[in-house]
């Protein structure tokens, strides 16, 4: 396992604890219209941490898909930002013009999920193509539900990435819409594209990390994309892996019990702070809807709902001279 396992474990512990805020957020009814489940899956955090992170726009890129916010936290997102997204605040990264997972920050390597399953594999294939064209030591990571493989769009994106040997790592979450996906399902798909495949399930963190790190290394070496199937975890207790991981980090990876407590306290304080701030922040202003849709100003029509004509309005000037040309 590359790097310092203990330091990485500390990071994952922190991300996991941060990620727990969403359950609290949803359970508290604060996300009344968000209404969508967010995945609390330790494995995605561990996998996302295997990529190369940066805050200057020079690191890897990740689309967390339906597994947000875990991988987003690993890429530097904060609970407050994500809460603002969910709460439709004008201060949200997407300024309330887009939803929780639709949040792009290229400097930190985040690309928001927009479109049906498969879309982001297409987009991240193009991101990876750009990395390859420039000869950069960068790769793209995309999380998709396994059901995406039932769409033509996903296969088009995967096919393009494979044909271009683009540095792309695709994680397929078989816990979601997986049908009969199981051991070997990703291998069968990968064979069709001539790319590498792996399957993870309840592996310990270092193995999850290593699987993605290996895929990333192959990708940036020009050996093309990889598929990683993530088989369902224990559905009865979504925290089981979380707790097991924390225990592992504490007992085996060298993160001391005291350190875990300190991380928990810091994370808890961070989340409390986020909720406190969120409550004080106003909803987005209505005028925020009117930002340009293009990079230049797009004139609004003369009459809009905001500037209705006055009663009795007439054109302000009569035609001059040429009205009756014949």
């Amino acid at each position: 396992m590359p790097g310092d396992a203990t330091a990485l474990s500390r990071g994952v512990v922190r991300d996991l604890l941060y990620q727990g805020f969403q359950a609290r957020f949803l359970a508290g009814g604060a996300a009344k219209s968000a209404g969508m489940p967010f995945g609390v899956d330790i494995r995605t955090v561990a996998m996302a941490r295997a990529m190369r992170h940066s805050s200057d726009g020079k690191g890897d890129l990740c689309s967390a898909g339906h597994l947000a916010p875990g991988p987003m936290l690993a890429f530097g997102a904060t609970p407050l930002e994500f809460l603002r997204q969910l709460g439709r605040k004008g201060t949200a990264p997407a300024a309330a013009r887009s939803g929780g997972r639709s949040w792009t920050d290229l400097r930190r390597g985040l690309i928001g999920w927009d479109g049906p399953p498969g879309t982001m594999t297409q987009v991240l294939a193009g991101v990876a193509l750009a990395f390859a064209q420039r000869g950069q030591d960068r790769a793209a990571l995309v999380f998709e539900e396994f059901a995406a493989t039932e769409t033509g769009g996903w296969h088009e994106g995967m096919n393009f990435a494979a044909a271009q040997a683009a540095p792309l790592v695709v994680v397929l979450d078989a816990a979601r819409g997986a049908g009969d996906a199981g051991e070997g399902a990703a291998d069968a798909i990968a064979r069709g594209y001539g790319v590498d495949a792996a399957t993870v399930s309840r592996e310990a963190y270092p193995e999850l990390f290593r699987t993605v790190a290996d895929a990333r290394r192959r990708a940036v070496q020009g050996r093309g994309p990889s598929l990683i199937a993530m088989l369902p975890r224990d559905q009865d207790d979504p925290w089981a892996l979380h707790d097991a991981f924390v225990a592992w980090a504490r007992d085996e990876a060298g993160v001391g019990r005291g350190e875990v407590k300190a991380i928990e306290r810091a994370a808890s304080a961070g989340v409390d702070h986020a909720f406190h701030r969120l409550d004080k922040e106003p909803e987005a202003a209505a005028d925020d809807a009117l930002v340009p849709v293009c990079t230049h100003d797009v004139p609004q029509p003369a009459w809009t709902r905001r500037t209705p004509p006055e009663p009795g309005w007439r054109a302000t000037a009569e035609p001059q001279g040429f009205h009756d040309v014949r």
Binding site: Q122, A130, F131, N159
Partner: peptide
């Protein structure tokens, strides 16, 4: 080949890839 890319017959796929490349500052 890096600037003249023959694509598979998959208009959705390669237009989506164009979006990703454009995110990264290219002009497809």
């Amino acid at each position: 080949q890096s600037r003249i890319i023959d694509t598979p017959i998959s208009e959705g796929g390669f237009t989506g890839a164009a979006a990703g490349a454009a995110h990264m500052g290219l002009r497809p």
